[in-house]
Amino acid sequence: MLTADKGRLASISEYGRPGQLRRLLLFVWQCWKLNLAGAMEFRLSFLLTAGMMVINNVVWIVFWGLYFRRFPVLNGWELRDVMMLWAVAAGGFGVMATLFGNAPRIANLVATGQLDVYLSQPKPVLLHVLISRMSVSAIGDVLFALMIYAAFGDKSVAGIVKFALAMALSTLIFIFFTVISGCLAFWLGNTEGLSFQLFNALLTFTTYPTGIFRGLGKLVLFTVIPAGFISYLPIGLLRQVDVPFLLGAVAVTVLLCLGGVRLFYSGLRRYASGNMISLRR
């Protein structure tokens, strides 16, 4: 060792002492509180943005309502399944964008060298980046998902547990697929457009019943753009537990999580920073 003793580090910090997880959770909680406080700084805009998203989603529900009044079954899907599809998709997206709102911005943050602040602080970089932003409109998506579930979902204990699991899988797939597409920027430069298109493709396909896709389309939805693992949840988990599908969905989610984390930290070695003036908002 060439310099002063490491033991002298962190004199007023509890770093290295027991309770690391509790302190990490307190940090996450504080970040979320600040995000919400920041969003509420502009009260009217906050309420309008979240409210507009609920209305936006309701338009789609009305559309599907009209459709099912005319054709009660669509390739085995009923109105209730489509409502659950919207609850799981909008809910998963909503939780991601509300609590991990920087996920869709990773490509931009990397390409414009805005990770410096996160890298200079002692918290897991990916977690810190993800939780440092909140999309206000996405709060509307979460509320919408809960409203749809309250109206159409199975309110038994088993039903609620299954819905919670579906939400967890959907959220994780959204987060880590978005992280992976954002990480392309470490290797390919400014991939903001490409990453956004990939994210948009996932988001779009999660809101259509998997039953309407066949052949290559279906293959894509269960491989390259894993939207099928979200959009089939109303049938394969909520309506009736389809064990092979559920195991597949869990395995894909775990793979995406591990792959996303691995890719992000490998990419950090190639991170080139930048001279863009940046502020945290």
Binding site: L34, G38, Q114, D116, V117, S278, L279, R280, R281
Partner: peptide, 14 residues
């Protein structure tokens, strides 16, 4: 500790 004159660690709206 680090202070980058052009990169703020303060939350802009808070």
């Amino acid at each position: 500790g680090s202070v980058f004159g052009q990169k703020s660690q303060l939350w802009y709206h808070l």
